[in-house]
Design a protein around this nucleic acid. Structure first.
Length: 223
DNA sequence: GCGACAG
DNA sequence: ATCTTGTCGC
């Protein structure tokens, strides 16, 4: 598959103009928070079989109220800044199969912390018109000062404050947080801080665990 | 031209 | 992202 990157770039710019950074969610009142993630049967191969998962957590009771795993062929390579074209279809499929929809979705990857302000979390939010937040384990773009242990520092892109870098614990594990859609820069951080567990927000971590579990089940049945 | 580059 | 558990070091 030879993607037309110039065309996709133009599409990202069009979508970026539709992002809203106004809060449709209140970080203190939000009850249902979702986490979405993907895994691949063989990441070295494209196309390959992929699994997508979504978990919805009820912050009031601490219980998981819904979770789904879906499967499909993924036929788009990983190209930096075009991650959504590889992962969004499965993520959307997983989201749509939920019975209980979250009020806000946390997506593995960047929100507006992207060269064209259209990371996968922003793309997801605009595409479905739902609130979303990007949570990445490493940097794509932006400048920041090293956060002190247990601290947070702003992430800037061309002088604009577009997200946060969070350091959990004394090691050097960082978390890059930015709004996707219908969430402000400030609220994106507040939501994540409310549910941070170890290194990742709990719903994201649960989706990740669910996928690893599901992945090895299916690997055994097919080789 | 060179390096950087989410998952 | 995957291969992979316990183990060494601050």
């Amino acid at each position: 598959m030879r993607p037309d990157l110039a065309e996709l770039k133009a599409q990202q710019l069009r979508l970026a103009s539709r992002v809203s950074l106004e809060d449709a969610v209140d970080s203190l009142k939000v009850r249902y928070v979702g986490g979405g993630d993907l895994t691949f049967m063989n990441i070295w191969k494209t196309p390959t079989q992929g699994l997508g998962a979504f978990v919805v957590l009820d912050l009031l009771t601490g219980e998981v109220v819904d979770r789904t795993v879906v499967e499909d062929v993924v036929d788009f390579p990983y190209i930096p800044t075009f991650l959504a074209y590889r992962e969004l279809p499965l993520l959307v499929k997983a989201y749509r199969s939920l019975k209980v929809k979250p009020e806000v979705s946390l997506i593995d990857g960047q929100g507006i912390a992207h060269p064209r302000k259209m990371g996968i979390a922003a793309h997801f939010g605009v595409y479905l018109d739902v609130p979303s937040v990007g949570v990445a384990k490493s940097r794509l773009v932006g400048e920041y000062e090293e956060p002190s242990p247990y601290g947070t520092s702003p992430l800037y892109l061309n002088g604009e404050h577009i997200g946060w870098v969070l350091r959990k614990g004394r090691g050097k594990s960082l978390l890059f947080i930015s709004p996707g859609h219908k969430v402000s820069v400030k609220t994106s951080l507040d939501i994540v801080r409310r549910i941070l567990q170890k290194k990742l927000p709990l719903p994201t971590r649960l989706a990740h665990n669910l996928l690893q579990e599901e992945r090895r089940k299916r690997m055994g049945k097919r080789s």
